[in-house]
């Protein structure tokens, strides 16, 4: 990666990528807002999750679990936290790339999510990667929060979000986030193992915990020797 001035055409490509990811991801904030109010949270609590937790997978897991009643709140926090661990892992990669300190580092931490990381990591140039991170992170943040509000307000008007397939929208979105990671046979194996483990333990464990147990299959990657490049 070079740190020279960013070419104008590269700049517009990165801006387009970041903004389109922002629009695509922000759109399903509607789904989150609608599910949050259906789960019994009020508009402000749903908005607080989008503004403060700001990590879609964790937010969906959280409201999915508290939908069963507030007695499940500790399990909801455990599940959203386990899912949030991956943001910490992204941060490990991003912190060197972004090279920020102080308040900007706090802002970078808050915007460290799947989408901003993916766009940043997809660039060849360090300046393009930084631009991609900030544009994607900021546009997802603004749209995700705006669309969460729309979802909470429409929530009661549109009735059961399942009628509109909004629960399936979340499944499809996770599938789309998983997809580009399934390039190696090892990744496919880990994904399959995690899916089987999660479904197998679901009947016996509280909601949210099966995902945490299944995450342990990632340890398999530590065992498997990496094949030499051909």
């Amino acid at each position: 990666m070079s740190a020279g001035a960013l070419d104008r055409s590269v700049r517009s490509v990165v801006l387009r990528q970041g903004l389109s990811v922002g629009v695509a991801t922000g759109a399903y904030g509607v789904s989150f807002g609608a599910l949050a109010v259906a789960a019994g949270l009020d508009v402000w609590q749903a908005m607080a999750l989008s503004a403060l937790m700001f990590t879609g997978g964790s937010q969906f897991a959280f409201v999915g679990i508290v939908a069963g009643g507030m007695s499940a709140a500790p399990a909801a926090i455990a599940a959203s936290s386990m899912l949030g661990i991956r943001n910490g892992l992204y941060a490990l990669e991003l912190t060197q790339l972004l090279g920020v300190r102080g308040l900007r580092r706090l802002a970078a931490a808050h915007l460290t999510i799947d989408e901003s990381t993916a766009v940043a990591m997809g660039q060849r140039d360090v300046r393009a990667a930084r631009l991609g991170f900030w544009v994607t992170g900021a546009s997802v943040y603004l749209l995700w929060n705006a669309m969460t509000l729309v979802g909470t307000l429409l929530g009661n008007a549109i009735g059961d979000p399942r009628t509109w397939g909004l629960d399936a929208a979340a499944c499809a979105a996770f599938t789309a986030l998983l997809w580009p990671r399934l390039r190696s046979r090892e990744a496919v194996g880990i994904a399959a193992a995690a899916a089987v483990v999660a479904v197998a333990v679901s009947p016996t464990l509280p909601p949210g915990i099966p995902v945490v147990v299944a995450a342990l299959t990632a340890l398999l990657a530590g065992r498997a020797p990496r094949r030499p490049p051909t």
């Binding site: 997978g57 969906f60 897991a61 999915g64 386990m82 899912l83 661990i85 991956r86 892992l89 490990l92 799947d114 629960d167 979340a170 499944c171 996770f174 599938t175 986030l177 998983l178 990671r181 399934l182 090892e186 990744a187 880990i190 994904a191 399959a192 193992a193 995690a194 899916a195 089987v196 483990v197 999660a198 479904v199 679901s202 009947p203 016996t204 464990l205 909601p207 099966p210 995902v211 299944a214 995450a215 342990l216 299959t217 990632a218 340890l219 398999l220 990657a221 530590g222 498997a224 990496r226």
Partner: peptide, 27 residues
Amino acid sequence: RVTAALPVALLAALVATQAVTGAGGSP
């Protein structure tokens, strides 16, 4: 290798539990 594999395992488990488990966690 483990940290790189973690998002794969988490997302696959999320898709699986949200797509094919119902009330009470049964498939």
